[in-house]
Nucleic acid binder design. Structure first.
Lengths: 123, 123
DNA sequence: CGGAATCCTATTTGATACTG
DNA sequence: CAGTATCAAATAGGATTCCG
């Protein structure tokens, strides 16, 4: 596995000081809200996540998980079994995102409604 | 000026139904949080914004404003004067973002702190 | 003043195939 | 099972120049 810093965001002076952008950057990613949703209740295995996210490729899933890991949001636990088992769970820091996610969901639902689109739960 | 739909996000079935992603997509953009910050208190002219956002190019500013406009967040008002004057302000929908921004700012500040980075107000 | 047009680069995302 | 490697495509963002 590559080093965690290989998945850190690139340098950007604005992001390094703006809390709002810092938060958005953590959540920005094709599958990140869905992954966080899946991990909200309990730890999940790699293959669980792949099954729960129709259309995601192995590479995409790995990348998003590594980025979330590098941001301290998810914890990767490898069990020394054969075949290997790897579980992903939320860290305390990751769980602290739930309020933010709730606000985003509320506002986003209103936004979709304005556009005449049907809002449903992230899956 | 081009049509508003030219600045709409591309098709993505997941975004079209996930409120969280919808909200994030509206706020995702190199300068959007800063622009919203600038417009929070009062309407600003194009050149005001350019001056308030060091490093932004004319094209980038135009693009971000058009996207925010197409999302119903900002209102563009052209005054028939010579030379032309254009003001940008928040719509009601845009003002309704403030709670979300506050949550993002709170969480983002904690996140930056964890990383040993100094948080400051978006500018 | 407030942009638009063009060109270019960087980053993100996806598809496919392969492996300890 | 849980990835990695490689390639290709799409998207975002910036630089420069020009215009009504």
């Amino acid at each position: 596995m590559k080093a965690a810093r290989d998945y850190s965001p690139k340098i950007d002076p604005l992001r390094d000081h703006c809390p709002v952008r810092a938060a958005i950057d953590v959540l920005s990613g094709r599958w990140k809200p869905s992954i966080l949703w899946e991990l909200k209740a309990e730890a999940r295995r790699y293959s669980d996540l792949q099954g729960a996210l129709p259309g995601i490729s192995a590479q995409a899933l790995t990348l998003q998980l590594r980025q979330l890991e590098s941001d301290g949001i998810v914890l990767r636990t490898v069990y020394a079994e054969i075949p290997a088992r790897v579980e992903y769970s939320l860290t305390d820091h990751g769980r602290s995102l739930s309020q933010v996610m709730d606000e985003l969901e509320r506002w986003g639902a209103r936004h979709l409604e304005r556009e005449g689109k049907q809002a449903c739960i992230c899956r």
